[in-house]
């Protein structure tokens, strides 16, 4: 369970999260949908504990943010930032295993985990010794997902994971990601501004505007029973054949 209880946050005098509350069940994929500046990335950062809330409570896995050590909290979250956020000075493999090495895992344990995950993320062998600058956007994203999964977190957090990719790569990765999520049964939170992507991934979708949560529900809920004029407008403006097809 991922839960926000009346969370507010302001930065440089401006309220960027206004009394946000939601409860998302485990094992599902949830999408935070909104235009840029709507506060979706702030929700992610608050969830990870990078930006502590001014008011309200954040809960994951039956633990309240601030009551467990930071390291424990973050260990249960795998973060995949926009465009991967790989360290340019490390190879794919070094990027993936860095976090385990930093925690003092034995080489054998790292190797075992590596072999366990490698087939899931579908990375080409040759890519593993390459540096981020030598990878395509899609490849970098796969490496980033590999890295995020390495400590076996309960929660996966993806910030606009596909927005910078070209359509074909994007579509392939979308399919692979969805399969992966289904297989791993992890709780996944995806931030995006793309309605089609939201509809494709999300068991539930939450629409944010100016730091306010307007509506949470399935895609059909949002489409057929919009709770706010903005929700209706948002869906109308992005509706295309694609969405119908995907569903």
């Amino acid at each position: 369970m991922v839960e926000f209880r009346h969370v507010s946050k302001s930065q440089t005098g401006r309220l960027i999260l206004k009394n946000i509350s939601f409860r998302w069940p485990n094992g599902q994929t949830h999408v935070l949908l909104g235009q840029s500046g709507s506060g979706k990335t702030t929700v992610l950062k608050t969830l990870m504990g990078l930006l502590p809330p001014d008011e309200g409570e954040v809960w994951t896995c039956a633990r309240k943010l601030g009551t467990v050590p930071r390291e424990q909290w973050l260990e249960s979250i795998g973060y995949i930032p926009q465009q991967g956020g790989l360290f340019p000075h490390l190879t794919a493999r070094q990027n993936v295993t860095l976090v385990a090495e930093a925690r003092g895992w034995s080489a054998q344990r790292i190797e075992e985990r590596w072999n366990e995950l490698l087939p899931l993320v579908q990375l080409k062998e040759g890519l593993l010794s390459q540096y981020p600058k030598q990878m395509s956007g899609g490849e970098a994203q796969r490496v980033a997902i590999f890295r995020a999964l390495f400590l076996n977190p309960q929660l996966l957090v993806l910030d606009e994971p596909l927005s910078a990719l070209d359509p074909i790569v994007r579509s392939n990765l979308q399919t692979d990601l969805k399969n992966l999520f289904n297989r791993l049964k992890k709780t996944v939170i995806i931030v995006t501004h793309d309605l089609a992507e939201a509809a494709y991934f999300g068991h539930t979708i939450s629409i944010l505007k100016n730091g306010e949560l307007l509506q949470t529900g399935t895609f059909e809920d949002l489409r057929d029973r919009p709770a706010h004029p903005y929700v209706e407008e948002f869906i109308r403006s992005q509706r295309s054949i694609e969405i119908e097809d995907l569903k």
Partner: peptide, 23 residues
């Protein structure tokens, strides 16, 4: 973003210095 990633990976200040900032 890389500082943020280093933070979410929970690198210690020393690890952050040696593995991320210095290189």
């Amino acid at each position: 973003l890389l500082f943020e990633v280093a933070e979410t990976l929970c690198l210690s200040p020393r690890q952050k210095l040696i593995r991320v900032e210095l290189p």
